[in-house]
Design a protein around this nucleic acid. Sequence first.
DNA 1: AAGGTACTATCGAACGGTCGATTGACTAAG
DNA 2: CTTAGTCAATCGACCGTTCGATAGTACCTT
Lengths: 214, 214
Amino acid sequence: MARSKSVASNDPSTGELVYSCAVDLMYERGFHGTSMRDVARSVGVQMSTLYHYFPSKQDLLMSIMTTAMEAMTDRVTEAIAEIDDPREQLKTAVHAHITFHADQLKEAVVADTELRSLEGDDLKSIIALRDRYEGIFRAIIDSGQRAGEFRPSDSKLTTRAILGAITDVGNWYRPRGRLALDAISTEYLDIFMSGINATTSAAAPVRRRSTTRR
Amino acid sequence: MARSKSVASNDPSTGELVYSCAVDLMYERGFHGTSMRDVARSVGVQMSTLYHYFPSKQDLLMSIMTTAMEAMTDRVTEAIAEIDDPREQLKTAVHAHITFHADQLKEAVVADTELRSLEGDDLKSIIALRDRYEGIFRAIIDSGQRAGEFRPSDSKLTTRAILGAITDVGNWYRPRGRLALDAISTEYLDIFMSGINATTSAAAPVRRRSTTRR
DNA sequence: AAGGTACTATCGAACGGTCGATTGACTAAG
DNA sequence: CTTAGTCAATCGACCGTTCGATAGTACCTT
């Protein structure tokens, strides 16, 4: 009999299973609605095994939120790294945010919604990660306004409006849904860039739609 | 001594106190993070008194969410009742939604975030209220597109983008904050209507900012 | 090669505490 | 004499966490 430890296979370790089962449950029922017994049952181990990998339930949540926030930050940072034009940066960042919320849906939603379940230094730590993340978007808006590509506005408020809308995608997006991911981010970006107003006449402001439609 | 039942005063009844204390606590810690003992302690009564007014914790949450959803629906419905132009309707509806989230912040946030704490028929009932509410906004978008005032788009997605952004206001708005309520809804509406793009030349598309400052 | 030692991963049982909910009795008003 | 409102005490279930035991494995010493 071969060793049960995976040689070339991708069998997740028990620790990874604990993590992913916790993500599943907390996505569905929230942190306080999920008990350690639920997680243990879901993984198929005894409760005490969980504490071999995570010192406490709080720490399990911290691990999930930190991982998700850092992965999200990395994804967006790398996506815009080689881009100079603020309009293209915003387009790319919005797309990266939405696709992250699509293919890491549960982690992302837990990270977005469980801030209030944290206390003390853990809370401060995640707030710092969130502020850093929002800062990426705000910097894009600011540089776009300085360059004259975006109209002047309260950049903090504008950032929140955009982030509020695209984060909400995690509340309704389902993998097998009606809309393709690209269609979603394109539509959102059209709204942010040009609004929903019909052009008053032939004098169209920058309309991106015709070039992105299939 | 006059009757202790308020004659001309506004003393809230115990039942109303239970309701509002529960709203406060669930806003801060969420439904599963709030115990009936917490609520009782906050009101200043024994736990059994709560059950004189609400048959169960679930029912207490249902009462809060139903009341909030219906109040929000009424507020928006009445606000746009006398308006025909879709652009003005959307402007008014967005303003009503945001002001509701400002002055009924806690109820609104509980109603927005505790769907997953409901089960069975209660869940279905609140989902129906939510769908009806979204339907109001979607109808505005649809009629605006038919009238040619809004550009064609996936109206369901457009509705979600707008509602996602303005509902998020409940996540950061604080009564004594930096921004006045009108400034917030005006800025949001500018983004939805015209986007953040700078106008390519002097030919400004519909900018509402300067004219809406009555 | 044999035996010893330490470490990792898991189990089953238990701890004290809190949970949502109920009971029965007491009080004051109508 | 009934009814609405409140209390103190209690129910069984579940909570997060800990403990001690038991395998299996890896490495070290002889």
